[in-house]
Amino acid sequence: MTPLLSVKNVTKTFPAGRGKNGKKARVHAVNNISFDIYPGETFSVVGESGCGKSTTGRLVDHLLVPDSGEIWFDGCDISKLSDKEMRPIRKDIQMIFQDPNGSLNPRMRVEDLVAEPLLIHTDMSPAERMKVAHELLQVVGLGAKHAHRFPHEFSGGQRQRIGIARALTVRPKLIIADEPVSSLDVSIQAQVLNLMQQLQRDYELTYMFISHDLSVVEMISDRIAVMYLGSIVELADKKELYAHPRHPYTKALLSAVPIPDPTVQKDHALLEGDIPSTIDLPVGCPFQTRCPRCQADCKLKPIEPVDVGGGHMVACLHMEE
C-alpha cells in the first residue's frame, strides 16, 4: 500500500535569541524525523511537553515550513509549496485543535463556523452550505437547535464536537488532531474519542493523533511514534509497542503512567537526571542524560533508527531485549 503521507528526514529549528557564547542560538524542535501514514489508519505521535509533537503536526499541515527534508502528501511534495499553491491541498488536510475555546471565532454562529471551509474550498450556494453544516452538526451529536448559537453557549465537549464537524465539512483525507481531548473531563473525553472512531469508520478518515496521554493513544491508535526532544525514538504497531517496548525512554514512559486500579502494585522505574535544553542538544542520543542504559558510545554520533522486525523501529544502541 502506498502511504498517504510520507515524512522524510524533516528538521525544523526556531531562532532563540543569543546563546551562552553570544552566537545566535536555535531551538531544535524536530530533528531528522521520518515516518509514513497509510490510508485509513490512526497514526499517533506521543511524547512529553516540548518533544516536538505539535511542531510535527504543524509541519504536516504546512503551517510551518521545514528547514530540510521532504513531506509527501498524496504523491506531491508539499514542503516546498508556496501558501497559494498549498491552498487547494488544504482541503484534504484538516486540523482539530486542543483548545476548542481558542480555535472557534466567538463572534460567529456555529452554523457559519462549520460552513466556512465550504465557502473557501467549494462553489456551493449559501443554502447548500447551510444544509451540509446542519447535517454535520447532527452527525457529531448536536441538534439543529444549536446551529444559531455562539461558541460561548457550549460546554468544552460540545465545542470540540463543533471543531470536529468543521474539520469534516470538506471531506478531508487526513485529519490532524492535536491533543483533541486533553482539555476535557474524563467522562466527556470518552464521548469525543468514541465519536472520532465512529466518524473514522463512516467517512474512511485517516488520523494523525497527537497526544501526551499514553492510555488515550493506546485506545485510538493503529501505529505509534514516541518522540523525545525532537527525535522519534521508537515507532511500532500499538500492540507491539505496549507489549514489548524496546527503547529505555518508552519503557520509562509506560511505567510512569498511574494505573487506575489500586490492586495493581506498580514498581515505577523512576528516571533520574535532567532534561537537556533543546537549544544545546547533546551529541548522540537525546535521552543520554536520563537513560539507565547509557554508555560511552551513545554520546558519539546521532543514533539511526533500526528495524527490529515488522516495522518496529528503535533508535537505541543498547535497547531492551
Partner: peptide
C-alpha cells in the same frame, strides 16, 4: 470511562 493502559480496549463507555 477512564482508558486503562494495557487493557487493549478500543471503545469506552461514556457518561
Amino acid at each position: 470511562s477512564v482508558p486503562k493502559l494495557g487493557s487493549g480496549v478500543t471503545s469506552l463507555p461514556s457518561i
